[in-house]
Write a protein that binds this DNA or RNA. Structure first.
Lengths: 343, 343
DNA sequence: CTGAAAGCGCTAACAC
DNA sequence: GTGTTAGCGCTTTCAG
């Protein structure tokens, strides 16, 4: 299979056809004001005739600032709703500035992260936002020194300094669990992600701290890790509810786990008996019976803030690194307001 | 705000430090087998010391095939689950080949489409996949002639020829509506997107054809367009159900509209009285009461097929343009199996 | 206000 | 096997 060569007109050809010089064409396409309108017209006519499109990559190669007007975002999985919403926020801000955005999925794999960062840097992106899976980011230091701008979102970097946007993981979780306690619950189960993940750790700490503050002891049998298979988790959840002194409420540390808990309660016919609050929004959560009470993150705002911090760096700002915290909102909708039905 | 200059080592510097030539360094980084292992080691050592990263954009500028190892995808809204799933499918196939992907949202705006296409072409992407909002794609012809490869997904191009992947919009809708009819429904409402959109038109045709085949007349008062505000649609839906001879079933032509219908039925307390089938998957659809019957598209498969077609072109294939159709699956789950409760 | 020459970082072509 | 020279399409610099 022969590989078809791309043939495109160059500025030189536009210059030749319009009877001007290469540099004049360059000026026209860069909107330099001091070009004779007559020449502008000639150039534009020739460009149109040849269907000329400037080659930005060639331009940025020679340009003093070296900018490619390109950023990259690296998320756990670009197809999950959280990542997809973030992505859109970056796109919107990028577009305002004529920037274009690369996206890649990390799948919780540090090797993956390294590889993608390298790939994007070899394309000379101006900035890179990461919701990291690697647990050490010192490998980015030379890149940062070389002028690449970094930002972190959802999870902070380790051994590395860059602007970061997080949400109130711990406080939001604490508030939710305190809410359950206020409704009379004493045996509250926690389902969390792999505790290696920053957000999972923080959310657990929130749960722990609310329990401690209320003088409640945590039953280790009521702690579930989401790093096992769905089936296994579903099974052990059901088991817990069929044991003596079962939990009367559940707090889930992430949206996929919330869906899992809903499924388990539904199968056990306990949906209206056991209270449930989930961290993170789930689609159609208000249409379920009962409607699901949630700790919601303002994902769009996180993206916007993070994008703005990144572009500020790209624009040359060299002030100290900042960490911004976007507040979560507790949204009672029914499932979190069920009172304990067991002693 | 001064713009910080990016300073990166070049092949020339690596050559100098390693005591070899520019070309040897190039060979090492392109894994040319015929380089003396001793020189390879020297080059690699120097590269590491300088933290050298090859500049792919400079490389593709000079390279004969001109490839940038970059593709772009243009979807309605990258944050919606359909687009996000497609996106992931392209990413996975792109990654296998060292390709990287740009993504952009069109927001049903042809001007937007033009602008983004231009932006991506100026970055010299090797291929471009569009789920189009423009109604005329003849503007792409010169680009195609110049060597850019195009693909279409979800909706076909107009006045333009390129590989296209669609799903069985019409047949899938027809099957769903026939299913409702088989359950005894005669007054079936249709909620569809703006009829300017290809998929909306096709899905309506499927509905129409099932109704016709069963000898049923379509009541225009039971046809709803999704191009109005959510509130307005919700209001007119409720009105229809409070009029004489209300619909006993609903078929919705898209996932957002399905959610809207669920909400309306819930507010009217008709969830268990009126049948509902939606086109497209909705998250947590199996957790609702009743669980929602759906016409599901195999989004990942659509993405995969489309990506493969695109890369085949990028690899030099010049055969005739193809249109591939990915079948939908009707999934009964409860809401579509409710029998008419009214005469 | 316009243009000619140089060169961004790399690969192609051809020498050695 | 290795190095030299030219040049991809553009912007910069500087002379006119």
């Amino acid at each position: 299979m022969s590989t078809s060569k791309v043939t495109r007109p160059t500025m030189r050809e536009v210059a030749a056809l319009s009877g001007t010089s290469l540099k004049t064409v360059s000026r026209v396409f860069n909107s330099v004001a001091t070009v004779d309108p007559k020449l502008v017209a000639k150039v534009e006519k020739a460009a149109k005739k040849l269907n000329y499109t400037p080659n930005m990559t060639a331009g940025s190669l020679r340009r003093t600032d070296g900018k490619t007007n390109t950023i990259a975002i690296l998320f756990e999985d670009i197809s999950n709703p959280f990542s997809a919403s973030l992505h859109r926020a970056y796109e919107d801000i990028a577009r305002e500035r004529g920037y274009v955005v690369f996206a890649g999925s990390l799948d919780e794999d540090p090797a993956h992260e390294h590889e993608l960062v390298k790939l994007f840097i070899s394309r000379r992106v101006d900035g890179l936002v990461i919701a990291p899976s690697a647990s050490d980011h010192s490998y980015l230091k030379p890149e940062q020194k070389a002028g690449v701008h970094f930002g972190f979102v959802d999870r902070p970097p380790v051994n590395f300094a860059a602007d970061t946007v997080l949400s109130t993981n711990r406080e939001g979780s604490k508030e939710a669990v305190a809410h359950l306690i206020a409704y009379g619950h004493k045996r509250i189960a926690f389902i969390g992600d792999d505790s290696k993940i920053y957000t999972a750790k923080e959310r657990f700490k929130g749960y722990e701290s609310a329990m401690k503050k209320a003088g409640l002891t945590i039953n280790k049998k009521h702690l579930f890790a989401g790093d096992q298979s769905e089936d296994a988790l579903l099974r052990s959840l059901k088991e817990a509810f069929q044991s003596p002194n079962p939990p009367t409420a559940i707090f889930t540390g992430q949206n996929v786990l919330t869906l899992l808990a809903i499924r388990a309660l539904k199968e056990l016919k306990l949906s209206n008996k056991v209270a449930l609050i989930g961290y993170d929004d789930i689609p159609a959560g208000d249409l379920l019976s009962p409607a699901i009470s949630l700790v919601r993150q303002d994902v769009a705002e996180m993206g916007r803030r993070s994008a703005e911090l990144l572009f500020r760096r790209i624009d040359g700002y060299t002030g100290p690194v900042v960490e911004e915290i976007v507040p979560t909102t507790f949204t009672p909708r029914g499932s979190g307001e069920i009172r304990p039905s067991l002693p």
